[in-house]
Design a protein around this nucleic acid. Structure first.
Lengths: 362, 362
DNA sequence: TCCGCCCATGAAAGCGGTTCCATTCGCGGC
DNA sequence: GCCGCGAATGGAACCGCTTTCATGGGCGGA
């Protein structure tokens, strides 16, 4: 009696039979306990435990059309950036008993089947991160008819929830900070891909600020590339050839690029921050670990992920609620790489870091 | 006619009716085309397209007991480490038309429901990463009866597939490298948590190597803490007090710790690698970006993830195949932080990096 | 004491597929 | 010319659960 039938998993029928009730009652005990007499409930629960019964999720989903799984599509999954975002998203999801089905669409994401179609049928909602235009994916997502929230892309016009990063304020702070110690004519913005959403906003803020400082931005003050140290280095090297002497200010579209620029400058014997003030973006862990420590605009990635999931869950539970767009705050973290005229703390060591300037051991 | 019934999604019945065939035929067209006459097939396919029919995954799963979704449970999702692993896993999964349901069990992972139980019913297999003993999770996983593969933990005894990191060879290389320029009595191992699987293996290799060098390891040569720069700094600071002068060798259990140690030493005015040779583990991107660049043992994280998924898929498709355990190779990457007597390349700059040793601008 | 109502429960109809089994039909071999 | 067989298709039984609707019984109000 106690031994479950070998092989086949326990079904609701097994429980019902074993407990001497109908399957309806068993189901109710699990989903709406208040509808069942306490005595029956505890009795049946015991049987459930004993048999190790687990409702079949597929059967359940077939009826309820819910799986408590959320899909999240990222442009890529490389690096801390997405890892942090995912972490926040996952934590928030778990808090509401949801799980995350993640995919890096990776641009060239096409299996034998139509793209992401497989899981579309299994998830309750979709969080979509589109840092660059992706018509195909976007269409596919819309067609799915799933509740959905968009990350880091301005699609409000389309009437869908979105979670954004407040690029304007963060970038504004950063450029203002640079302008406080560097003339506008000697400030540069080193971006990621030209059509990247964040890069676009940050660049716009940059030029706006220059204009605000009564300077008409030259074309060479804004450059586009990729989110990589390599691009930063390339830009840095080129810059060194063009720019004369005197301090310059660099606002990079992310820390990777900033790091590359920093590297190129140090390698060329420049001192940072004395010869150049550099500010990155995202405040990745890298930033504070670098020497000189990199000033950077902190973006609350984990919170972004969490907010997205939260919005999504809300949309699932209240399909008719008004479209919401949430903007996450950013904040400039000033570190060594950009300290200008301001005096350091009293015990500050001699300013400026120059690669390889040390001699041997003491 | 062409207009799909508003609201309700198209079902296989709709297709069958519209195409004038039975549902059996429609199903066959999608799952076993060879059983259907080509003419019928194309005709029905046209209808499917026109109606935008998508099989209901739940109904499908109910019959087939497959979802083409794999679960992957990580100890955490913080940092590059897991991000990289996930990336490899995801890529491999997509190649076989699988998707990934990821969870960071986070030790304290308990929603209202029993832990990871929800998704257990939806996934076809489970990749479990257990860097530290977790009886509860382990039991739960085994009970699920799911095909499964274990990452980075030696559970072969239990008869389950596993993917391991070849800690022994990597750590062996690292310590041998240190011993080539530092006396065994002045080498240290700075570990992560004591019961962490990798730390354990690496520590063992370390002491074994010391013995091999005719040195009886002192207790203070091995220390345990957490995988964090903070712990590395703490250890470094303590070490500076105890150790006298003379070069030392440090093998850290990961790059984070190594970074902390490096930081502490530089802050105290020591030169690396002149006063201390440091080697990290994992070869995170950090390692090559640090100054001095950090020597580290490269671990092919993405490949580890991919291998796990591959093994899992294989187990799903061939449940009876013999248990496999795959060991991924590691390799020491020598960089500035540990270069000993060996002469650098011809154009090498003066060796040794000492924080803040530079003066102002040139 | 009787009636109506509510509470606890059961029977059964789906949910949307897959697949076993039966049926029909065309055709080659004897 | 007939038999048998395989190819193409349809009928219908599930898969395991949720949920509506019906039923029976206990109980408070009149």
């Amino acid at each position: 009696m106690t031994t479950p039938k070998a092989g086949k998993p326990v079904s609701i029928d097994d429980v019902a039979t074993a407990a001497g009730v109908s399957t309806a009652t068993v189901s109710r005990i699990l989903n709406a306990p208040k509808l069942v007499a306490p005595a029956t409930a505890t009795r049946v629960m015991r049987v459930i435990k004993r048999l190790g019964y687990r409702p079949n999720r597929f059967a359940q989903g077939l009826m309820t059309r819910r799986s408590r799984v959320l899909g999240i599509v990222l442009p890529d999954m490389h690096g801390e950036f997405y890892s942090e975002l995912l972490r926040g998203a996952n934590a928030r999801a778990r808090r509401s008993s949801y799980h995350l089905l993640v995919t890096a669409d990776g641009a060239a994401d096409h299996g034998p089947d139509p793209i992401a179609t497989a899981p579309f049928g299994l998830i309750d909602g979709l969080a979509l991160m589109l840092t660059e235009p992706n018509e195909h994916l976007w269409k596919e997502a819309r067609q799915s008819g799933l509740p959905m929230v968009v990350l880091d892309a301005d699609l409000d016009a389309e009437g869908v929830d979105s979670v954004l990063i407040d690029n304007t304020s963060g970038a504004g702070e950063a450029i203002a900070h640079l302008l406080s110690s560097v003339p506008a004519s000697r400030c540069y913005f080193v971006g990621g891909p030209r059509d990247n959403f964040d890069t676009g906003q940050r660049a716009a803020t940059f030029t706006r600020a220059l204009r605000g400082a009564r300077h008409r931005p030259r074309p060479d003050q804004t450059a586009y590339g990729t989110y990589s140290p390599q691009w930063g280095r390339t830009w840095g090297a080129g810059m060194l050839e063009r720019a004369g002497t005197g301090v310059i200010g660099v606002m990079a579209a992310d820390d990777e690029i900033a790091l590359g620029v920093l590297d190129a400058l140090l390698a060329a014997g420049r001192s940072v921050p004395d010869d150049a003030r550099i500010v990155g973006f995202n405040d990745s862990r890298l930033a504070s670990l670098l020497r000189p420590a990199l000033s950077s605009v902190r973006v609350p990635l984990a919170e972004v992920g969490a907010a997205a999931v939260e919005a999504l869950i809300n949309r699932i539970q209240h399909p008719e609620s008004p479209v919401v767009r949430k903007t996450m705050p950013t904040q400039l973290m000033v570190r060594e790489s950009s300290r200008g005229e301001r005096p350091g703390p009293p015990d500050a060591p001699p300013r400026g870091i120059r690669r390889r300037s040390g001699s041997g051991s003491s």
